[in-house]
Every structure is written in C-alpha cells, then in structure tokens.
C-alpha cells in the first residue's frame, strides 16, 4: 500500500518568534526553518509502516516556493521514497492546501494519507479534516496509535478526557499527535542517498482549482505582557498574599 505524507516548512520550533515592527507578520528572514514537528511524526509513522511490510511506498508532498524542496529532501533523508513539490509563490490557507492535496491524491491513489495535526506557525489544525471532507474519506485525527489490519486503520485518538479508539475503512486520512512516535534522525548515508531521490514539481496553477485566500491578515502583534511578579520569601508570605492581596484562596 502507498502512504502519502504531507509536510510543511515552518520556523524551527526552537526559534524565538519575533513580531515585525510594522505588525505585518513575524520575522522570517535569516531564521532557521525546519519540517513542522507534527509532520516529522507523520513521516516516521509512514516509515514504520513500510518497515513492518504494510506500506510499500512512502511519498512526501509539500506546497510552497522553491525552498520547500529542502523540507521534502529532509523527509527523503529520513527514508521516504520520493517527493512531490506543489509549487506556488502565493500564501496558501488550509482549505486551499486541502484542495491541492486532493488533486495529488487523485493522481497518486494512496491508501493512507498522514499529516501533522497542526502546523506550529499558524496553529490552524484543519488540513487533515478538510482533506477528509473533500475526498469523502474517514478521518482519524490527533492519533497516538495506528494499527493497520483487515483493510482498516485502527486509530487511537487523544481526546479531552483521555483516549478514544476508532476504526476507519481504508483509504483514510490520519493526523498525528505528539505521542504517536518519536521520529528518527537522518543518517549521513541516507542524507547522501536522498540527494538522488526524485522530487516531481507540479505548479499549483496547473491544477485548476480555486486556491485564493479567504481571509486577509490585518495585523500581527505581540501578546499582552504580564507584569513581572513579586518574589515572596516563604510559603507563609505567599499564602498571606493569595488570601489578602489576590483574594484567590
């Protein structure tokens, strides 16, 4: 079976985010970029399915400018078989991303699509669900365990009160949560091998779909700062303050 994994290039999770002075966005120039951490988990899960003999091919797809090829390449270095780069210079919002991925699904016919549950830049948490809607496939979001058997994906999901397990008929869409697995590191030989792997480039404007943005960003600002606090000497002082000053206990 073929597994398609969608990945996004984002500001590395260790980078401290700085809002631009003109409030048009956050600073991205000269900032380290990486694969979205939830997507790394998606790649890892696909590779494990291949190693178990369940998946036969792992294809990585990403959407964006020329530089997303680096992100695809890093997935290939982890062990994925080949990449697809949907090229565009425009901002793509989750609905547009889902429409593009649907076109790629129609072309590639995967049995399973795995995506990160959200990108750590816009934190939308939408693409997997939207893709499932557009393809009319079942969805297993926020997965912490995936088992493939009898043409079904048995997905354990992280829900608010604990865990929920559902069974999805394949083909299906899965979005990954943090505890699904711990991604591997790329080995040097695999990084070398990845350089020779194929990345197919498909211009987004050749796909014939409405990918126009549906919202405009008016402003990006820093969150309200909290006043820096009061150091207390001991528990007794703390409790006094909580009772008489803050009046919370």
């Amino acid at each position: 079976m073929k597994v398609l994994v969608a990945v996004k290039r984002v500001i590395d999770y260790n980078v401290r985010i700085r809002v631009k002075a003109d409030q048009t966005g956050v600073e991205t120039s000269n900032v380290k970029m990486s694969m979205n951490p939830f997507d790394e988990i998606a790649v890892e899960e696909a590779l494990r399915l291949r190693e178990k003999g369940i998946a036969s091919e792992v294809v990585i797809v990403s959407i964006g400018g020329q530089n997303v090829q680096e992100t695809i390449r890093s997935g290939l270095a982890l062990g994925a078989d080949r990449g697809i780069h949907c090229e565009t210079g425009q901002e793509m919002q989750p609905l547009a991303i889902a429409k593009i991925l649907k076109k790629i699904i129609e072309k590639e016919n995967p049995n399973l699509v795995i995506l990160g549950k959200q990108a750590i830049d816009d934190d939308s948490n939408q693409t997997a669900q939207m893709l499932a809607a557009l393809t009319n496939w079942p969805q297993g979001t926020f997965a912490s365990k995936v088992v493939i058997e009898n043409n079904e994906a048995i997905v354990t999901r992280e829900v608010d009160g604990g865990l929920e397990t559902i069974a999805l008929k394949l083909p299906a869409i899965i979005s990954t949560d943090l505890r699904l697995n711990e991604p591997r590191y790329a080995s040097l030989p695999n990084i070398m091998k990845a350089k020779k792997k194929e990345i197919e480039v498909i211009p987004v404007n050749s796909l014939g779909l409405d990918a126009a943005p549906r919202f405009t960003t008016l402003k990006v600002e820093e969150p309200a700062k909290r006043q820096s606090g009061v150091k207390v000497a001991n528990i007794s002082e703390l409790v006094q303050k909580l009772v008489h000053e803050a009046k919370v206990i």
Binding site: L95, A98, Q129, A132, A133, L134, T141, R157, F215
Partner: peptide, 23 residues
C-alpha cells in the same frame, strides 16, 4: 476549540467551501 470542535468544524467548513477560523 476543543478536541471535539477541532475534529468536526474543519470538516464542516470544507464541505461548505469555507475557510474555517480556528481558536
């Protein structure tokens, strides 16, 4: 915007051809 809402709202939005707004 809980596990419940986040699971379902984007699916509804896509079927309506709407870009959902999260959180």
């Amino acid at each position: 915007a809980t596990a419940f809402g986040k699971n379902i709202a984007p699916r509804i939005a896509a079927l309506l051809d709407v870009q959902q707004i999260s959180d």
